[in-house]
């Protein structure tokens, strides 16, 4: 009987241990905050519910892109945010979406890269091959990417659909520069708050003059509406008309006073006794033409780029730090 009791205690303690190990494991999973990913299969069209055509050229990009729950909005793959921070940041995203009708996605990764464009490719694929902005006309939204790669930390913002129209290069620069200190000092909650506030500010400012006559086409690229250049046409036509009239009027005025006699020169008689070209001095000046804007900025933002999906997006240019 005593043996039987001991056996029961052993079984019970074992069960308790197993449960405590299981509980520990579950606790560890929650504390790591890893985004829950789903599996891409042929049956679910590799998780792509947008109108992009999946083919041999982009299939590998699709499969290598995490398939996430699009309702989470904050995806901390680099595991640099606490659960509390994620929840706070989620409220920023929600606020932005409620006020603008556009997505706002925060993604962190720890991904080695050699060129900034790799971050852009990742961000574009992540947005395009998940269900972000699915119910919006052009999958409108903004994705903030933080690459926490220790050798060269980097962050940038990427705009999709109609969100592209709200940001010209100056606005991208302002947003990214405003949050530089906070992001580079890992103050992500305040950094993302400032990011959301700046984006909201520019949304409320409206579309800048750069894109005043632009629209987003069916593939998400910025296209310009045709705007007839009436003023330029007026000036050009006026100037050319005046030139034509002057030429025609001059044809009627043939009489001219002669002031020179070049046709009467006897070329054989031209005789030089002194013919001297004396070098006096030389002066060299130089100036530098720089294509970069300085301050560790990358150029190339503010234009529609094509992702592997074939859809368009724009990027801010990125910051290292």
């Amino acid at each position: 009987m005593k043996k039987c009791k001991l056996f029961l205690i052993l079984i019970l303690s074992l069960f308790i241990n197993i449960n405590s190990i299981k509980a520990d494991t579950e606790l560890n999973l929650i504390s790591s905050n890893e985004p829950i990913t789903k599996t891409r299969t042929k049956e679910n069209n590799y998780g792509v519910n947008k109108h992009w055509i999946i083919n041999d050229n982009n299939l590998s990009n699709v499969l290598s892109t995490p398939y996430v729950d699009s309702s989470e909005k904050v995806y901390d793959f680099a595991n640099i945010l606490t659960e509390e921070e994620e929840k706070t940041i989620y409220t920023y995203s929600k606020e932005f979406m409620d006020k603008t009708g556009m997505e706002m996605i925060f993604v962190t990764v720890d991904m080695p890269y050699s060129y900034d464009s790799k971050n852009e490719e990742y961000a574009a694929d992540f947005y395009d091959y998940n269900d972000f902005g699915l119910d919006l006309e052009h999958y409108d939204g903004i994705l903030f990417l933080r690459n926490n790669y220790s050798a060269d930390r980097y962050y940038d913002m990427y705009t999709f659909g109609s969100a592209q129209l709200y940001f010209n290069q100056n606005r991208y620069d302002d947003v990214l520069d405003t949050i530089y200190y906070k992001i580079s000092h890992d103050d992500y909650v305040n950094g993302f708050k400032a990011f959301k506030d700046k984006c909201l500010y520019y949304y409320n400012e409206g579309i800048p003059s750069t894109y005043k006559h632009s629209y987003i086409d069916e593939n998400g690229f910025i296209k310009k509406h045709y705007v007839a250049p009436y003023f330029i046409a007026f000036i050009i036509s006026l100037v050319i008309t005046i030139i034509i009239l002057i030429i025609l009027i001059k044809k009627n005025k043939m009489v001219k006073k002669a002031t020179e006699a070049s046709e009467y020169i006897d070329k054989k008689t031209i005789n030089y006794s002194i013919k001297e070209d004396k070098f006096i001095t030389s002066r060299t000046t130089s100036y530098t033409v720089s294509s970069s804007s300085g301050g560790g900025h990358s150029s190339g933002g503010g234009r529609s780029h094509s992702g592997s999906s074939g859809g368009g997006h724009s990027s801010g240019g990125g910051r290292h730090g």
Partner: peptide, 13 residues
């Protein structure tokens, strides 16, 4: 680079 010169022509025609 700007080179400066002085030129003289003396003669007749």
């Amino acid at each position: 680079k700007t080179d400066y010169y002085e030129m003289i022509r003396k003669g007749n025609m």
